[in-house]
């Protein structure tokens, strides 16, 4: 008898190791669950809810749901994909996602997810928020219009770079990305081009200057194949950092 524990994902047995979440086990076993704020190298955040699956009669974010023996998980169903489509639509309506002028177009996970889920319109009333950009840094541009509050830059900066350059501030619809500096400007932080935080933005918020369209539209990552076909090769990776940085741990203890 094998010691490997398993749960059911869309009727298929998925093996897992103790401590793994449902999405980790699923991706490792070659089963794609759409996701946006989940990243294999960082602690799960569970905020975008795109990875939501159905367990029994309840829904749960599979990036924070611990894998348990005997779970019956439903993911690739019309019901779950309809829900995911609505979540992506709300993200498009909430920010200013003007793809035709965005340098990230073609390399953007939100856009690629929209394509893969067949999102043809945001459907909702667009909010058209007023979010000024921060171009203060000599090598980096921050375009907050496209922020989806996934906290990947926050987690990367804290867990890997140990700098905590970024943070989320405010609650509910007022929640927004901020820069941890007295001036609030990126030029007044110790952020560097080599930082993990600069690499992980799934959308077009954190952009390297003077790169632009050097990689032409049509020859970009998600032009070749949809995000669902790429996520599997990308996902099974070891964590990059060793937890929160010292300053954050201290602040949390207080």
């Amino acid at each position: 008898m094998s010691d490997t524990q398993t749960f059911l994902l869309d009727g298929e047995e998925i093996p897992f190791a103790p401590g793994q979440t449902v999405i980790q086990a699923a991706l490792a076993a070659g089963h794609y669950i759409p996701h946006l704020c989940y990243h294999p190298e960082f602690k799960p955040h569970g905020s975008c809810k795109v990875c939501t699956v159905k367990v029994g009669n309840r829904t749960a974010a599979s990036c924070t749901l611990p894998a348990q023996a005997g779970l019956e998980v439903e993911s690739a169903s019309d019901e779950m994909n309809d829900l995911r489509r609505t979540l992506v639509q709300m993200l498009f309506a909430e920010g200013n996602h003007f793809c035709p002028s965005c340098e990230k177009s073609g390399n953007c996970a939100l856009q690629a997810l929209g394509y893969d889920l067949g999102v043809m319109t945001a459907g909702f009333r667009h909010l058209f928020p007023d979010r000024p950009v921060d171009a203060s840094h000599p090598d980096l541009l921050l375009d907050f219009n496209r922020c989806i509050l996934c906290e990947l830059c926050v987690r990367a900066s804290c867990e890997v770079d140990g700098k905590c350059v970024f943070a989320l501030s405010g609650r509910g619809i007022d929640k927004h990305l901020i820069v941890n500096a007295p001036s609030g400007r990126l030029e007044d932080t110790d952020v560097a081009l080599t930082d993990k935080a600069v690499q992980v933005c799934p959308v077009g918020v954190i952009l390297k200057k003077r790169v632009g369209f050097a990689q032409p539209i049509g020859a970009r990552r998600y032009d070749a194949s949809p995000i669902s076909a790429q996520a599997l090769a990308d996902a099974p990776r070891a964590p990059a950092g060793d937890g929160r940085c010292a300053a954050c741990e201290e602040a949390e203890e207080k």
Binding site: F92, N96, F98, M120, T121, H126, D130
Partner: peptide
């Protein structure tokens, strides 16, 4: 049928909305 970014999202003209 709404065709194109402007009909679907407001598009370039909507960049004046803020």
């Amino acid at each position: 049928i709404a065709i194109g970014a402007c009909a679907v999202t407001g598009g370039l003209p909507a960049q004046r909305n803020h």
